[in-house]
Simulated scan of single mutants.
Amino acid sequence: MAAPPQIAVLGAGIFVKSQYIPRLAEIAHLLSLKYIWSRTEESSKVAVEIAKQHFPGVECKWGDQGLNDIIQDAYLLGVAVVLAGQAQVDISLKLLKAGKHVIQEKPAAASTPKIETALASYNSICTKPGQPIWSVAENYRFELAFVESKKLMADIGDMMNVQVIIEGSMNSSNPYFSSSWRRNFEGGFILDMGVHFIAALRMMVGSEVASVSAITSHIDTTLPPPDIISSNFKLENGCSGVFVMVVSASSPKIIWRVVGSKGTLQVERGKKDGKHGYVVALYSADGQCKSTFYPFSGVNEELKAFIHDILQASLKKESGYEAEPRSSFLEGARDVAVLEAMLESGSMGGALVHVKKF
């Protein structure tokens, strides 16, 4: 048996403390968490104290010297980059150039021009088999609800219409509300949150979004603009749909609904027996409804997939290894491209915009 791969986590913010450390702890038998890095010594130490309950050997690293130590560590196989959206791509590329496999938090990058530049840099590194894997952490593609929904699409016949309605809860009681980088990010919360909902949409329908026409507005002045987007879209398969996102609503609701010629498939965020997750409901032509609740499992599943990939890649170094496609940087890029097109259309009063292809 190969030794569990050694990994590092860059970042010590809310998501690392509330999600990454607990989810990595659930798969602690598969990996060794060697370092947690932050810009400051203080925040790194706080995160390490939490992680030590599960990974007693984990070490603190901080600042430029700490980052350099991680880059230079020949025994370190993979790194999770969980930083401010503006900083992630440059640091990911530094690590990839040093031969580390990277799983980077979404969004893939702030814009499609930045994605193109990043992909050019990555492709210049990847000139031979066995080069490092660059994953984007998009847990919605790993949620069992969407994995199962994709299979159920065959039961609703020809796709006729798609509706995605997102009424979010990004207000002062949300831990991410005061996150400064999201407020200074192109597209703000719409882009940062929205990539999840687009990822789920693209996965369910199995067709790319070809063009969009959107109206954007700014109503809640405690949020960066825009905070509301209402878009018509057309899929490459010819089907039309609507995507509506309100960043902060008094009664949150998150729903994907696909109407077909033989039935309708709906996925709705909800709660059952104290667990958060999704209800997947299949409505057949005879009025019957079959529904199943799937608790959240995406973060755990995407991390397991990454650990599996980096271990396989290290064992098959010379022959090259095909990593999990759902995590690829390209998939993350395609999510950003859809939202960027919607935001661009909104800034032009609803003009038709074609989605950039990656």
Rank of each mutant, 00 (worst) to 15 (best):
M1R: 11
P4Q: 02
P4I: 03
P5L: 12
Q6P: 07
Q6T: 13
A12D: 07
F15Q: 14
S18D: 10
A25N: 03
E26C: 05
H29D: 15
Y35K: 11
R39G: 09
T40D: 07
S43M: 10
S44F: 02
K45Y: 05
V46N: 06
V48D: 14
V48K: 02
E49K: 13
E49N: 11
I50E: 07
I50Y: 07
Q53I: 07
H54D: 14
P56R: 07
V58I: 11
C60N: 14
G63C: 06
G63K: 01
L67S: 09
D69G: 04
I70M: 11
I70C: 07
G78A: 08
L83K: 01
A87F: 06
Q88E: 08
V89S: 08
L95H: 03
G99L: 06
K100S: 13
Q104H: 03
E105V: 02
K114D: 03
T117V: 11
A120D: 10
I125Q: 05
C126V: 15
T127V: 15
P132K: 10
V136F: 08
F146A: 05
V147A: 05
V147L: 09
E148R: 12
K151H: 12
N161E: 14
V162C: 13
N174M: 02
Y176C: 03
S178H: 15
R182Y: 12
F189W: 14
I190G: 00
I190Q: 04
M193E: 06
V195M: 10
H196L: 06
A199F: 05
R202P: 07
M203Y: 11
M204T: 10
G206P: 12
G206W: 09
A210T: 04
V212N: 07
A214H: 09
H218R: 09
I219Q: 14
T221C: 11
T221P: 06
P224N: 09
D227E: 02
D227H: 05
N237S: 14
G238K: 05
M245D: 12
V247Y: 00
I255H: 02
G260Q: 08
S261N: 07
S261F: 08
K262D: 09
T264G: 06
E268M: 11
G274S: 14
V279Q: 03
A281W: 04
L282Y: 03
Y283P: 00
C289D: 07
T292I: 08
S297A: 09
G298E: 08
V299N: 10
L303Q: 10
I307A: 01
I307D: 00
S314A: 08
S319L: 13
G320N: 08
Y321V: 11
A323T: 09
P325K: 13
F329A: 05
E331A: 08
A333V: 11
D335A: 12
V336W: 00
A337D: 02
S345G: 06
G350P: 12
L352T: 15
V353Y: 05
V355M: 10
K356M: 05
